[in-house]
Design a protein around this nucleic acid. Structure first.
Length: 561
RNA sequence: AGCCCCGUGGUGUAAUGGCAGCAUAAGAGGCUCUGGACCUCUUGGCAUCGGUUCGAAUCCGGUCGGGGCUGCCA
């Protein structure tokens, strides 16, 4: 089963060791534990792929568990959205959908156990006082004056906390560890706070809610998780995770921390994404420029490509930033193999084939996907008046430009070889091209010995479908918008991150497309149908451009090289 | 400042005591009815100093550098 040289990341190595030693009886059981207080992004995707991926590889299980311990921040709507996004990414938790709030009862019983054992106490200090007593990074903290209450008194107080006798913030339950511990997390951490708030799941049943550290290990323990994988910032919390579980003497999973995903030219944290949305820089959580799963979906990124990326970037403990080009590469690679091809002209230039009859129409056969013969073929209509891309004609072409120019012959893909006879202008503006076809080149085949340097895409004017196309590009102008000294990241938004063009022309076959369908406009890029599309208005999103050597040549020319 | 974690091509990662590999990016060429895809080649890396060893990216120590931690958030 194990392929011989498959590189193993440090997490899989730990699991291999545990399986060898029989630590968890050979079981592997992970979990993805989002807090339902926002939408998932590609950083979460890394964690999802890791947790579900590992479970699958080892023949184990992965739970979807909502870590809903803070009623002030969490909403039912997010639960539904997160479930949807995890499914879209391609993972299945089967019947293992859990909520931390399902365990509030058990958690409380365990808290009582700790109180009875003299390992937890009720503290009357205010939040400010607790902070003050905690000490600093370099100085030890001081014991709370309430630290040595008797177990009976603590028990009584805890019960009254639960019963709702006290106001928010009046008291907390704390673990009794060590106020001088060099790890601040161990200086008598808060286990329960009083919050008279309605919880999305438990309603008004509780008015005390568990803190993350107290809750999380217990959730893992209750579910029989073997490896509790989380991000690096919880490394300092592991001693506490271990302390709680040891103090309780319950089943004890292994917490493992890895570095979260960061990408260039974007921001990932909910806080910054929210700013972009609330200030109107983007249209919502599903804006195609955002790294949210919903944004990527609307942009046309296939979930398989996102999974491929997550596999390839690996897992480690170094903080690193993946180049967004790498994501785009995975997307292009995926779409190249799967996306059907169509012809579409973004910025139309009208051309008239002078020696082609006005009332004539032919159909040519076009390959749907050269990478996938099973995708079949389709017919595309050809007639006297066509559209080609404005970029595909130059009156005075520079040396390496080998598209259409006056007097030059090129191929119209699948159709004919044509020659440009005249560029017609009005007031100095190019309005149309007069061209001729060589009837002997029907189907686009050049007679023996004749070569044309370029093949252009085209659309028959009489048969064209109009479309609005939204061109997307990198959200920011710099790789790390948050690291620019003295600059608000919002001022670094790429003004060209979204450009809308409206007079686009596509071949008739695009009429069969549905929202979110992905395809390629040959020679242009990958696109998908935006859900804004209506019966008489087609809206397309550009997912990614094709790699473009000509653009690279131009760029180099401009940079003076 | 105290505690914890981490330093391998531009970027992301392998190799765990024995020739530093892969992917991506970049450059050159080939092929092509998409200047796409594909194929070939090239450039480029073990933070640093010392120790152990026949031999160190790997083990040990120092230095330097990066990150995290002082919520009744997760």
């Amino acid at each position: 089963m194990e392929s011989k040289e498959a590189p193993r990341d440090f997490i899989r190595k730990i699991i291999d060791e545990d399986n060898k030693s029989g630590r968890f009886g050979g079981r592997v059981h992970t979990r993805f534990p989002p807090e339902p207080n926002g939408f998932l992004h590609i950083g979460h995707a890394k964690s999802i792929c890791l947790n579900f991926g590992i479970a699958k590889e080892y023949g184990g299980l992965c739970n979807l568990r909502f870590d809903d311990t803070n009623p002030l921040k969490e909403e039912q709507d997010y639960v539904r959205a997160i479930e949807e996004d995890v499914k879209w990414l391609g993972f299945d938790w089967e019947d293992r959908l859990f909520f931390a709030s399902d365990y509030f009862g058990k958690m409380y019983e365990h808290a009582v156990q700790l109180v009875k054992a003299g390992k937890a106490y009720v503290d009357d200090l205010t939040a400010d006082e607790i902070r003050d007593y905690r000490g600093t990074l370099t100085t030890p903290g001081r014991d709370s004056p309430f630290r040595n209450r008797s177990a009976d008194e603590n028990l009584n107080l805890l019960e009254r906390m639960r019963a709702g006798e006290f106001a928010d913030g009046a008291k907390v339950l704390r673990a009794k560890i060590d106020m001088a511990h060099p790890n601040l997390n161990m200086r008598d951490p808060v286990m329960y706070r009083i919050l008279h708030a309605k919880h999305h799941n438990t309603g008004d049943k509780w008015c005390i809610y568990p803190m993350y550290d107290w809750a999380h290990g217990l959730e893992d323990s209750i579910e029989g998780i073997t490896h509790s994988i989380c991000t690096l910032e919880f490394e300092d919390h592991r001693p506490l995770y271990d302390w709680y579980l040891d103090a309780l003497g319950v089943y004890h999973p292994q917490q493992i921390e890895f570095a979260r995903l960061a990408l260039t030219y974007t921001v990932m944290s909910k806080r910054f994404l929210l700013q972009l949305i609330e200030k109107g820089y983007v249209r919502g959580w599903d804006d195609p420029r955002l790294p949210t799963l919903r944004g990527l979906r609307r942009r046309g990124y296939p979930p398989t490509a996102i999974r491929t990326l997550c596999e390839r970037i690996g897992v480690a403990k170094v903080n690193s930033t993946v180049d967004i080009e790498f994501l785009e590469h995975c997307v292009r690679e995926d779409l190249n193999k799967t996306a059907p091809r169509f012809s579409g002209v973004l910025r139309p230039l009208r051309i008239v084939i002078e020696n082609y009859p006005e009332d004539k129409m032919e159909e040519f056969e076009a390959v749907n996907n050269p990478e996938d013969p099973a995708a079949g073929k389709r017919k595309v209509p050809f007639s006297r008046v066509l559209y080609i891309e404005q970029e595909d004609f130059m009156e005075n072409p520079p040396p390496k430009y080998y598209r259409l120019a006056p007097g030059r012959e090129v191929r119209l893909r699948y159709a004919y070889l044509i020659t440009c006879k005249e560029a017609v202008k009005e007031n100095g503006n190019l309005v149309e091209l007069r061209c001729t076809v060589d009837p002997d080149t029907r189907g686009g085949n050049a007679p023996e010995g004749r070569k044309v340097k370029s093949t252009l895409h085209w659309v028959s004017a009489a048969h064209a479908v109009d479309a609005e196309v939204r061109l997307y590009d990198k959200l920011f102008t710099v790789p790390d918008p948050l690291a620019q000294e003295g600059m608000d990241f919002k001022d670094l938004i790429n003004p060209k991150s979204k450009e809308v063009i409206t007079a686009c022309k596509a071949e008739p076959a695009v009429r069969g497309l549905k929202p979110y369908d992905r395809f390629q406009f040959e020679r242009i890029g990958y696109f998908c149908v935006d859900p804004d599309t209506t019966n008489d208005h087609l809206v397309l999103n550009r997912t990614a451009t094709l790699r473009d050597q000509w653009a690279a040549i131009q760029e180099r020319g401009q940079s003076g090289k």
